[in-house]
Design a protein around this nucleic acid. Structure first.
Lengths: 191, 191
DNA sequence: CCGGTGTCGAACAACCTGTTCGGTTATGAA
DNA sequence: TTCATAACCGAACAGGTTGTTCGACACCGG
């Protein structure tokens, strides 16, 4: 394992403390002082490892590697990322909720939106859509629906299973996407 | 006109100052000190009128009455609120952008989401949908798409016109909604 | 004109941030 | 085991923000 044991311990303590505090009070309300008290870490030690609160959250981003570059497999399933992502989120529920939930930082949410938007856009292009302004608007709608579902779930507004969420997402979005592809794409029909 | 002229003046100055500052620096970065300097208002005066930053924004909410209770007119147009709302937003662009844009406060966005969600839900029920968990998920998707479009537009990521945005929204969402209504509602077909 | 009300601005305590620095402790290598 | 080193502690600090108080002053409406 790389590095000093103390370093790993300190970083882990701080990261876990922040996640726990966000879930308790919301991102904005958490102070650095809160974090170092909860993590039982010296003030100077905190700043030796992280530049600020947000940096701690960013350092956790590796574990959020549920953004795997799409399981390939050609243009098979329409929104192949959907179900696996819901399931990964369920596994790391705490962390994701702290980062993407309505109590999380707006910056992190924007980051997540961009990631999902890139995936959706690539999928639509692979499915035969042509790059255009109207495609971008479609992508915004699809991502908005997905993120909305995700946050609603993380915030406990629904108790649906990943499979049900996936189904709701597809039911809401697929018909519109198919129509758009049929209209502009033509060649390669989705699915 | 109700009240002292000084009061109206002070309140207006503060509200305008906050909007301007949010557009410059983003909601989080604006401090009360910033506001009173920009508004040229005494510190104690500020706290005599508002309890804090967020209170100022909430006081502006009246002007955001573009949430008119749907122009009635029976189950005519599917998402009747869409185009008028985009147009109202264009008129009050500055204020709405400060409140709902990605630089605005998360709390305000959540508030706006709830308003739109209520409208969408009522419309779907009026169109014959049955209240259920899956309807709520559909509402979340529709609202997510709409808010996504709205914020993307407010943040200057697209230069589309209200009519184009409305068209994109309908194109993305209507097919899925029609399918859902046909499946569960049955009786009163949309449109 | 005058009483009431709004405003000013300074000062305040309390809190948070990010940095510094000397002393202490644990770690990994020899 | 020994030991140099790297990490940690914690107090203290300057700078900034918040929300409140208070006396002096200015303005408004009757």
């Amino acid at each position: 394992m790389s590095g000093d044991r103390r370093v790993r311990r300190t970083r882990r303590m701080v990261q876990e403390a922040l996640v726990a505090l966000i879930l308790e009070k919301g991102y904005d309300a958490v102070t650095v002082t809160d974090i170092i008290e909860r993590a039982d870490v010296g003030r100077s030690t905190f700043y030796a490892h992280f530049s600020d609160k947000q940096d701690v959250l960013l350092s956790n981003l590796d574990q959020l590697a549920f953004l795997r570059p799409a399981p390939a497999g050609g243009p098979g399933e329409p929104f192949a990322f959907s179900l696996p992502m819901f399931e990964h989120v369920r596994e790391q529920r705490e962390l994701v909720r702290a980062v993407l939930g309505r109590c999380g930082g707006a910056m992190m949410v924007a980051h997540g939106e961009k990631l999902i938007a890139a995936i959706v856009r690539d999928e639509l292009l692979a499915a035969g859509a042509r790059a255009s302004a109207s495609l971008d608007l479609l992508v915004v709608c699809v991502v908005g629906a997905y993120i909305g579902l995700l946050r609603s779930w993380l915030d406990g507004e629904t108790t649906a299973s990943p499979a049900e969420l996936d189904a709701a997402f597809r039911a809401a979005v697929e018909p519109g996407v198919r129509a758009a592809l049929a209209r502009a794409g033509g060649t390669r029909p989705l699915q």
